[in-house]
């Protein structure tokens, strides 16, 4: 009896290890492939008889040099940083008051407003980019990064308001009420007392919004077509990938440089984002 139970347990343990190993391999393979390719010499990369998993020739930094010296990649990084930071700022200016108000609106009205805000998050940019492209060009922002700065917050504000609402709800209302009784205005109570307590929530919102701006593809592809003004998400696939030129070393170097920091940062907050989503659909 105990022997079979032990064998059973051992079998389950091995099964667990096998499952985790397979899932880990598929999850990490593209990242490993970026890294291997980015450091490989072209002569090694484009030799079909070589084992692609090994460095058959010594590794090289040539692709990174090419990427940073001879392409517009550094320019795209700067553009992305500017668009991302401006998007974060606008999103916070709009979503902080909204999230706070939603948290303090009790009863049916508050509930319904919260859900309404969340529902707008479900409307994808792929449905809106055509009319927006006309709006952008009619106000003269075609081929201008301001077109992205002004539209990206619309992708973040609904979800971030929702996220911050949940956060402000978790803070005790007595704190601000005490300040109000002491004669503080609603604004000072919010600015001096609630905001410092809400820093973790705000940080989550900042990471979410910034990575969204790095990630965004369709608006950037539609609104900006001048190479110097592109963000990384559009610059790399449109300017570096050319059907007839082999650039894979530099392309994988760029993918590695962009995706690794973003993924590591975003992942640290992933649970909170998902909590926000499940709360959005369940509460």
């Amino acid at each position: 009896m105990t022997a079979t139970a032990d064998i059973r347990r051992l079998f389950l343990r091995l099964l667990l290890v096998a499952i985790l190993a397979i899932f880990l391999a598929q999850a990490l393979f593209p990242f490993a492939w970026m890294a291997i390719t980015a450091f490989k010499r072209d002569s090694d990369l484009y030799n079909p008889t070589n084992n692609p998993f090994l460095f058959n020739e010594p590794p090289t930094l040539a692709h990174f040099r090419l990427l940073f010296k001879e392409t517009k990649f550094p320019r795209w990084i700067v553009n992305t940083a500017w668009v991302g930071l401006a998007t974060v700022l606008i999103t916070l200016v709009l979503a902080l008051p909204a999230g706070y108000a939603l948290a303090r609106l009790r009863g049916r009205v508050g509930q319904n407003l919260g859900i309404a805000v969340f529902l707008t998050y479900l409307i994808p940019p792929t449905l809106l980019f055509l009319p927006l492209s006309q709006i952008v060009s009619s106000i003269g922002l075609q081929d201008n990064t301001w077109s992205l700065v002004l539209t990206y917050p619309s992708l973040a504000v609904p979800f971030v308001s929702w996220l911050l609402m949940g956060f402000f709800r978790s803070l005790p209302q007595e704190l601000e009420e005490a300040a109000l009784v002491d004669g503080a205005t609603r604004f000072t109570a919010f600015w001096r007392i609630l905001l410092p307590l809400a820093v973790p929530g705000i940080l989550t919102a900042v990471i979410f919004t910034f990575t969204l701006a790095v990630n965004e593809f369709i608006y950037a592809l539609t609104f900006v077509s001048i190479s110097d003004l592109k963000t990384v998400s559009v610059g790399v696939p449109t300017d570096l990938i050319r059907g007839d030129v082999f650039f894979w070393g530099a392309i994988m170097a760029s993918a590695l440089v962009v995706s690794l920091p973003v993924a590591l940062l975003y992942n640290a907050f992933l649970d909170r984002f998902v909590e926000g989503l499940t709360a959005g659909a369940l509460r």
């Binding site: 593809f217 993918a255 995706s259 993924a263 992942n267």
Partner: peptide, 18 residues
């Protein structure tokens, strides 16, 4: 295991294209 979702979709799709 969660990295694929956190990685920018454009960059990881480019890796898959390769």
């Amino acid at each position: 295991l969660l990295l694929p979702w956190a990685s920018p979709v454009v960059m990881s799709t480019i890796a898959w294209k390769w």
